[in-house]
Design a protein around this nucleic acid. Structure first.
Lengths: 252, 252
DNA sequence: ACAGAGCACTGGTCAGACCAGTTTTTAAAT
DNA sequence: ATTTAAAAACTGGTCTGACCAGTGCTCTGT
């Protein structure tokens, strides 16, 4: 294989495997050439390859930077010509939730139907973590719980699409429990919904699980609508948190 | 903009706009450099960019060739790190259809609920075209009908996701009516399903529309399963037909 | 007719120069 | 000392011309 390709793969791994974060600057071409003991040409060719894949962006006189859109997690959602939809259209968020409602429902349905004992164990673990965590801290446990359910559906396409949708959501606003939990009654309801969902799935009641999951998303969506009506500002999410969902092939 | 990028775009257009077909050889780097009056460096950089995008493949000592898999229409579904799921896993096709069943159902539901008179007109037009077309020709009318319905949902996210899924499907197999129609009884059922779907939507019965749409996808999926069981080979789709679904923002 | 050497392609890499934006540093002017 | 403008030191972009490394053709000697 050509050196330029080896280097492009090497750089891509370095970027994706956590070394470099989005918007971060990559060493200059001359530096890379010297460090990797190759001519500047092959560095430039490798970088152009990454550019073609959308991994980096290059600005004349400034340098090369990791794209905010990191493929691997992204591909379907967070990049590309669709993103323009969001600019100035908060309504899109609810379109997003509308689709999510359907798919989370399906995921719950399939999970209740297909979950193996290992899946059940994972879901249980995530659920326990969810109950024992201070809700005011962050949204991670909530995320883990839903993720475990989705993966238990054993449908990689579904996993992938939902990950994309979630990333798209995170891209616009921090719309998770972090915003909702502070309100006591609301938190109570959400906890109840989670418990119902958990029980429906672990006891193998697909229809019930689907119903609960859909109701949950609809509830969250409505809550966000209400908050927005009251004038509460939805907090923008920091970029680092977007690099989460990469478990597309966990079940592969 | 850099010359190398202009050239990469130029070459990509030449390739996609019909000039060059898959597996066809591209002029040598030295030839391109001479013809386009630039140095070989920029040609090489442009080619590496196309390589990164998956438009071409390069073989040492032989030359550069147009990839059989052409993106451009692709951007989100058909390319990228998800595609590895398909290699050797026809099962993924049914995962795909499983998700589609859900989303087509939702699209039909929302279309029945939200379709404007213009939407209804479009759907009607597409439906007429569908009925009057020789089913053995190609799958375009069928595609148009479903597309019109999806767009009538007035949910751009839904439109986008379904387009991606459809592209991913086309990427693996020609799984449309082209394969199914030749069988008389099957075609009859499909026509009936289409009519039911059409009537449910235009007469504003969301629940019914959803049910019919989901049954339709499930039917197609099952038909494909049966065909596969019988040993019928699913025909690979020619690349040109993949450049269809780009109507993401028709309603924008 | 055949085998093999040579040649004429192809892409891959290298070196060094220069151009063109960007940022930092430096030096001059206030 | 502060401000401002020139200059230097970065960044990526392009060019040139050379050489290496695979591939395939052609021509030659047997």
């Amino acid at each position: 294989m050509a050196i330029s390709q080896e280097i492009s793969y090497r750089l891509e791994r370095m970027i994706l495997d956590g070394g470099l974060a989005p918007e971060q600057k990559i060493p200059s071409e001359r530096q890379l050439a010297e460090r990797l003991r190759v001519s500047r040409s092959v560095i430039r060719e490798a970088l152009h390859e990454l550019q073609g894949r959308g991994v980096i962006e290059t600005r004349h006189g400034k340098g090369s930077f990791v794209s905010t859109m990191v493929p691997g997690s992204a591909d379907l959602g967070t990049q590309g010509p669709l993103m323009h939809l969001f600019e100035g259209h908060p309504r899109t968020l609810y379109d997003l939730l509308e689709v999510r409602e359907q798919l989370e429902g399906q995921a719950a349905f399939l999970a209740a139907q297909r979950a193996t004992s290992l899946d059940r164990h994972r879901i249980t673990k995530a659920f326990r973590a969810l109950e024992e965590t201070d809700p005011l801290s962050n949204a991670r446990p909530d995320h883990g719980f839903h993720q475990a359910i989705v993966e238990a559906s054993h449908n990689p396409i579904l996993v992938h699409v939902l990950n994309s949708l979630k990333n798209m959501m995170l891209m616009t606003v921090q719309a998770s429990v972090a915003n909702l939990n502070p309100r006591a009654e609301m938190r109570k309801k959400i906890v109840l919904q989670h418990r119902q969902l958990y029980e429906a799935i672990t006891s193998g009641r697909p229809a019930s699980a689907q119903k609960v999951a859909m109701a949950h998303v609809r509830f969250v969506s409505k809550a966000m609508r209400d908050m927005e009506k009251e004038g509460s500002t939805l907090i923008r999410v920091p970029v680092e948190q977007m690099t989460s969902g990469d478990h597309t092939d966990t079940h592969g």
